[in-house]
Amino acid sequence: MEDEEVIKTMTVSITRGNTIRITSVKIISFSNINNTWDSEFSDSDTNRLADVFFNLRKQKPDSKQGGLSFQNWFKSEVKENQGDLTWDLSSKNLYLNPEFALQFSMADDDGGVAQDIMLGPLF
């Protein structure tokens, strides 16, 4: 029959294997915590505190260069004025192969400009 419609369904199950899932990040301390990061505000103004975010980069295959290279993977929301420095990432499905390196950096967001609050080599 030419006009007969046939519908087929397929179920695919994907297993993550031997990966680590990142479900939360908590920043306990950083250089100059609780002190002035935004000098345009007075010492008594909470806006002087860092507007903190973090960035994760992981290794991915690089077809242009060959081998592996680090690429941005996840950037957190900004916690203004050092708010609660805990991020719940349980809904983000961040899975990492423990055999590959992960780069972590954190910064103070000043409206599109970021200051490294780790004060050291990146990552």
Rank of each mutant, 00 (worst) to 15 (best):
M1S: 09
D3N: 15
E5Y: 13
V6S: 01
I7E: 07
T9C: 14
M10D: 10
T11E: 13
I14P: 08
R21N: 11
R21W: 03
T23P: 04
T23K: 05
K26I: 05
K26L: 05
I27Y: 02
I28T: 13
S29R: 09
S31P: 04
N32E: 06
N32K: 12
N32H: 07
N32Q: 13
N32P: 01
N32G: 01
I33W: 03
D38H: 05
E40Q: 13
D43C: 13
N47M: 10
R48H: 13
L49H: 06
A50Q: 01
A50C: 03
D51Q: 10
V52N: 02
V52Q: 05
F53Q: 10
F54R: 00
N55P: 03
L56G: 01
R57Q: 05
K58I: 13
K58M: 05
Q59I: 06
K60M: 09
P61D: 08
P61R: 03
S63K: 10
K64Y: 04
K64L: 02
G66M: 03
G67D: 00
L68W: 11
Q71H: 14
Q71W: 07
Q71F: 12
N72Y: 11
N72W: 11
F74M: 11
F74A: 07
S76Y: 04
K79N: 12
E80C: 08
D84Y: 01
W87A: 09
K92H: 08
N93F: 14
L94R: 06
L94P: 08
L94H: 08
N97L: 01
L102E: 00
Q103F: 02
F104H: 05
M106P: 01
A107H: 01
D109S: 11
D110C: 10
D110V: 10
D110Q: 12
V113N: 15
V113H: 10
Q115D: 05
Q115S: 07
I117Q: 06
M118C: 09
M118F: 02
L119K: 14
L119I: 04
G120D: 11
P121H: 14
P121F: 13
L122I: 07
F123N: 05
